[in-house]
Design a protein around this nucleic acid. Structure first.
Lengths: 193, 193
DNA sequence: TCGTGAAGTTACAGATCGGTAACACCCTAG
DNA sequence: CTAGGGTGTTACCGATCTGTAACTTCACGA
């Protein structure tokens, strides 16, 4: 049975994949390494042979999810090569899509909230990855030909971030339901300058 | 010394106050009941004489913070009696103020993220309180005379929610720095219809 | 075929967690 | 003065947590 837990996948990759999923669903402090290794069809010793500590695993998971998000951006360029405005609209659609399916929000933002210790090693990684995503959205807005690209990108960022957390506190019928309308309205109003 | 921990304050109130503060700073799963009672200058037994469980304490803390937020709203009405538009601007200023000082975001949203169990008793309380706050902002927008009051209120909600979480992942120099500009621009554009 | 290294297994250490039992204390209302 | 309720203290339970040690098993390549 190709259930992805055993098969021909290296234990390290199974652990990484399973940890991403479980951290996302139950939160970082809500899942222990025992539960991860068991779900990954392996054991604790193997985990600690591949990762220095749980914190190290957390960081690798964050990098992996950021890498997946990066692949999404590449898909926009592939689908609408050169047409940056179309890519921006695709970004909005994709964001909205994730708002309905994935109801547990952004892993990096959630981690930033959960890991309140200011010196936690994951915090600098989170900032690093989030900063990169911000720059990418700013560039997309700029190249899409809107004035005040930074302001539009930051506004869209906050809207999406807010929608993701709102989804978790009040559900899908809350303010996040209007995300697409808000985002498209903003883009239109920034375009018209 | 009136440090608020002993004095003439009932143990229950000291625990509630201390727990609010510590949950806010370190997160719910990041602080144990022992730490709370010690910081409150009392002990675990006294805590469990006043609260059924830690979950019960969490819920009472959320209600208390929501009540404080409600007091802020009343202050707006007191300061600008009848002038709903001025109250809306005051809301924006207050929100921005909390974005710089209080760097750990909204307790209810943070709790919703931390308590990922869908059947956690605090979740319904969070939704209940957040829904009430939403309704209050919608009413304020409506009475301030803007068209599409719900859409403006929801957009402002998402912006603030997003700013609060962004503050924790990328810091004060991130997108949240532009919150006032975004919010005021939105209000102006909704007014001009 | 044999050796090597990765992976699985079991057991454990040490700490922390939420929650409870039993008992001593002290302030205050009657 | 006295009785009682709220409080403090200590010790404990059982569960769970991260992380490690020692040993066995297995697959693969020379």
């Amino acid at each position: 049975m190709a259930d992805g837990t055993s098969e021909r996948v290296r234990p390290r990759d199974r652990i990484l994949e399973t940890a991403q999923d479980m951290f996302h669903k139950h939160g970082i402090k809500g899942v222990g390494v025992d539960a991860i290794t068991e779900a990954a069809g392996t054991n604790k010793m193997t985990l600690y042979r591949h990762f220095e500590s749980k914190d190290d695993l957390i960081i690798e998971c964050l990098r992996a999810t950021a890498s997946k998000a990066g692949a999404m951006w590449d898909a926009f360029e592939t689908e609408y090569p050169g047409d940056k405005l179309a890519q921006l609209h695709a970004w909005v659609r994709k964001a909205a899509e994730m708002l309905s399916a994935d109801s547990r929000g952004c892993d990096m933002a959630n981690a930033a909230i959960e890991l309140s210790e200011t010196d936690h090693p994951a915090r600098r990684v989170i900032k690093e990855l989030k900063d990169a995503q911000r720059e990418r959205l700013v560039n997309l807005c700029r190249e899409a030909g809107v004035g005040q690209a930074e302001l539009l990108a930051d506004t869209l960022s906050l809207l999406l971030e807010g929608a993701r957390v709102s989804l978790q506190s009040v559900g899908a019928e809350g303010p996040s339901a209007q995300f697409v309308r808000m985002a498209e309205g903003l883009i239109a109003s920034f375009k018209a300058r």
